[in-house]
Design a protein around this nucleic acid. Structure first.
Length: 809
RNA sequence: GGUCCAGUGGCGGAAUUGGUAUACGCGCGACACUUAAAAUGUCGUGCCCAAAAGGCAUGUGGGUUCGACUCCCACCUGGACCACCA
């Protein structure tokens, strides 16, 4: 047999598997179904990233193992191809985004195929294909019909360099998540999706799914549910009431001032015609400008402006001055905050700066605080003081008692607030799904009729975003002008497009029935395949993508088009693949690993093994070129071992009996490790077995074949080649996962460790079935033990079955 | 600042419910093969001691236990995510 040559064997098998469609998922059938999913890639111009390889290899191993376990497995792939990077690249290079997308997906497809992933290529989807986005638009219409898509004029985050509106989630530290450019607030009519209506369900149903705990925590934090009290306050000598939100109702007894967010519309009424009007407007302008400039710095400095109004404290009757404050957030609660400086750090800082009164209402149990001495707010629990009939009450009880009292007096009501905001769904860009809405002069806002879908993106010469903030589509008069679906009169199309979260919020359902042109997926097939059984992806998508797609899935369930409320039964995340030295891989650092080069030099099997071997799957791991060598050597050794395979060898020979034991241990270990994603230790066990074989001159074929089968999910090419070389006609990937014999795993002789006063002093070998008494007898008679005990009588002897004996002197 | 996670050889990392710390791989060293190198193979490789015996080692300090990488308390360091959320 010739030397191991990955360049020869890998393309050969890749073609054969594809031709014979051995990884095709069949709709329905006798076997139980299993749906394994990975996040479909954004086909960027950089090609496949080492991180894709890590995630896709892991789920490929799971998918292959499930097939061997007798499941009908769906492991699909596609392209999440709408979005800004493609559009930006297209603009820069004067190419149509369609052409760029085609070129990039061709590269990705070739790369993925070269790595031997067992995707069902018959189900490949592309979010930019009109046959696909027809259904994304259809979904929008359903959301619209159910009142979950609405248009609203609102200040949006505007990226100055991308010239596009961004959702709150896409703005990081005041900068655009995509390009890092500066953002500002602009007023614009935007489409929003009412995800907040699903906030409770999205939180509650986390209990029903099997996600990594840290993923659940992230989802819950993002939704950010908090129960509290909305309070209503009379503005002194004005016919205006203000509402605030609090989670600490009992501190209302100590509230001495109030703050309002600069963006709050009611400010206008409060200052109109007063001497404070000019100053207020200036202050507001500065706040907003500061936010644009450097949000991080502003956050540390608290600024306020007194607007000449007072609010009456419901409990104490005090007149509380009202300030516009830069730290008050318009989007949370009511945008107005009741401030108790003695028991809130932020309020304390503000009160000190503007010399506002302090009133202590909580006294700690074990010490006494004096207002005069306060250097910081007291934020702990304690006993209420200066609080009317609640004085002397424990704060844990007072919280509810005061709230009940306020509600009973008609001065407030219980409310639940969420951190989650509605999802801004409009983008002013070309490369996205057009929103299927028409504006008629007579009928107003009219949805495109379902039979007219898809609303195709027009081919245009100029798809650059405009400085006016309008979508480039707005410039294409021919496309914009249309007839009203209701009255037939003149009308104009919506020119905004959807964000690229849209296509990825339901793609896992389209894989189930990718070619259906009557429905987004047939109910029969959905009943069979949904939900996804195991979904793996990056930690960076565990808040937004996961939340958005869960929201859509719940909506589909509510309108009765799918059978399950939660889309993913299980969700896991891989750690990042970092560059050498532990830094993030980036083009500017020049440390990006190109999978093509690795495949050319070492082969796909080596790359797959290496990425699984070099560290725990859920942790970040730096790339190490030398590590590849170790995995490559392992494959060469296996190639060498396979030249020593003999049929019909006596498996009773002692060396072969030992090898059989090791084989069964390895089968058990590798199988369990795949389930817990402990791929690094799985590969380690495979190496141990191969090393044992390497020491032998002859290896029985039946043992070696079983080993090849458990190796196959990890290194599919070499496993297939070696399998064929020893005369097998059918693909190894159609084999069953071998069963291990638990009797064969047990050792005949075991080593017992002897500890004296907790220190390791001796080891003895005994028969596995030796009794406790026998073992103790042997140990107490041993010379070494006698030496250490010095002949003294042991106080205590502890025996741990099959493991150790601990003697206490 | 908050939440979560992690600290084990020269390096990536192993270690069922507390029970042989350092599996596997990299690197390094010696030897073999070679004119030589690469590749490959064999052996060695936590630290201290010439070696044996022994002692010391899982970020630091304490505690529980016959026994702690593992459990508890305090602290130090690093990472991830969120961040004026009332």
């Amino acid at each position: 047999m010739k030397k191991y040559n990955h360049k020869k064997i890998e393309p050969k098998w890749q073609k054969k598997w594809e031709k014979e469609k051995i990884y095709q998922a069949l709709d329905f059938g006798e076997k139980p179904k299993y749906y394994a999913l990975v996040e479909f890639p954004y086909p960027s111009g950089d090609g496949l990233h080492a991180g894709h390889v890590r995630s896709y290899t892991a789920m490929d191993i799971v998918a292959r193992k499930r097939r061997m376990d007798g499941y009908n497995v769906l492991y699909p792939i596609g392209w999440d191809a709408f979005g800004l990077p493609t559009e930006n690249y297209a603009i820069k290079n004067g190419l149509h985004p369609k052409i760029v997308t085609k070129r990039n997906t061709d590269t990705f497809r070739r790369q993925l195929k070269s790595l031997g992933f067992s995707f069902d290529w018959e189900r490949e989807i592309n979010t930019t294909d009109p046959k696909y986005y027809k259904w994304t638009q259809w979904i929008f219409l359903q959301l619209y019909k159910h009142g979950l898509a609405y248009k609203k004029k609102m200040p949006i985050n505007w990226c100055l360099s991308c010239k596009v509106g961004l959702a709150n989630e896409e703005v990081v530290d005041g900068k655009c998540e995509r390009c890092g450019g500066t953002t500002e607030k602009r007023d614009k009519e935007q489409w929003l999706l009412a995800i907040t209506k699903y906030a409770d369900k999205l939180l509650e149903d986390l209990k029903t799914v099997d996600y990594l705990e840290k993923i659940k925590i992230q989802q819950a934090n993002w939704i950010g549910r908090s129960e509290g009290l909305e309070e209503y306050w009379q503005v002194d000598s004005m016919d205006i009431k203000l509402a605030t939100f609090t989670t600490w109702p009992h501190t209302t007894w100590g509230a001495t001032f109030m703050v309002i967010a600069p963006e709050h519309p009611i400010i206008e009424q409060l200052v109109k015609g007063t001497e404070y009007e000019k100053g207020a407007n200036e202050f507001i302008k500065n706040c907003i400008q500061d936010k644009i400039k450097d949000r991080l710095n502003v956050e540390k400095k608290k600024e306020g402006y007194f607007i000449g109004r007072y609010v009456i404290n419901n409990l104490t009757g005090w007149k509380m001055p009202l300030y516009i404050a830069n730290f008050a957030i318009m989007d949370y609660g009511t945008g107005i905050v009741k401030c108790t400086p003695t028991h809130d750090e932020r309020d304390f800082e503000f009160a000190k700066k503007y010399n506002l009164p302090l009133k202590l209402v909580i006294q700690p149990q074990d010490s006494e605080i004096k207002v005069e001495d306060m250097k910081e707010a007291y934020i702990g629990e304690g006993i209420m003081i200066n609080a009317g009939q609640f004085t002397g009450m424990d704060t844990l009880q007072a919280r509810k008692a005061v709230a009940d009292f306020i509600v009973a007096q008609g001065m407030g009501k219980y409310v639940v607030n969420f951190h989650l905001r509605d999802w801004i769904f409009s983008r002013q860009h070309y490369w996205g799904e057009p929103i299927p809405i028409i504006f008629c002069e007579k009928c107003g806002e009219v949805p495109v009729s379902e039979k007219d879908l898809p609303v195709k993106l027009p081919d245009v010469k100029n798809y650059e975003p405009t400085d006016t903030g309008e979508s480039p589509l707005a410039g294409i008069e021919k496309w914009v002008k249309t007839k009203c679906p209701k009255c037939g009169g003149p009308a104009r199309r919506e020119t905004d497009t959807m964000p690229n979260w849209a296509g990825s919020s339901w793609y896992f359902l389209r894989y189930i029935d990718p070619k259906n042109d009557k429905e987004f997926a047939s109910r029969e097939k959905l009943d069979y395949w949904a939900p996804v059984d195991w979904y793996n992806g990056g930690m960076e998508h565990t808040t937004l993508h996961l939340l958005y797609s869960r929201f859509w899935n719940k909506f589909f369930y509510d309108i009765g088009v799918i059978p399950n409320s939660e889309p993913y039964q299980k969700r896991t995340s891989q750690g990042m693949v970092l560059g050498t030295g532990g830094v993030k891989m980036s083009k500017s650092k020049g440390n990006v690993v190109n999978p093509d080069a690795v495949v050319a030099n070492f082969g796909a099997d080596t790359l797959r093994l290496y990425e699984m071997f070099m560290g725990p799957f859920d942790q970040a791991i730096p790339w190490d070129e030398k590590g590849l060598n170790g995995c490559y050597r392992f494959l060469i050794r296996m190639w060498e071992v396979s030249t020593r395979i003999k049929r019909g060898l006596n498996t009773n020979k002692s060396t072969n009996t030992e090898l059989t034991h090791l084989l069964h241990k390895t089968i058990k270990k590798v199988g369990e490790d795949i389930e817990t994603m402990s791929f690094n230790t799985a590969v380690s066990s495979l190496m141990i077995f191969a090393n044992e074989c390497y020491k032998l001159q002859e290896i029985p074929q039946n043992i070696w074949e079983k080993f090849l089968v458990i190796l196959a999910p990890f290194a599919p090419f070499i496993a297939e080649e070696l399998w064929a070389n020893i005369g097998n006609k059918k693909s190894i990937h159609l084999e069953s996962w071998p069963k291990f014999d638990s009797n064969l795993i047990k050792d005949k002789e075991i080593e017992i460790v002897v500890q004296i006063n907790g220190k390791l002093r001796d080891r003895i070998i005994v028969a596995a079935e030796a009794s406790e008494e026998e073992i103790k007898k042997i140990i107490l008679a041993s010379e070494k033990v006698k030496q250490w005990t010095g002949g003294k009588e042991p106080k205590k002897i502890i025996y741990v079955k099959g493991k150790l004996v601990s003697i206490v002197i």
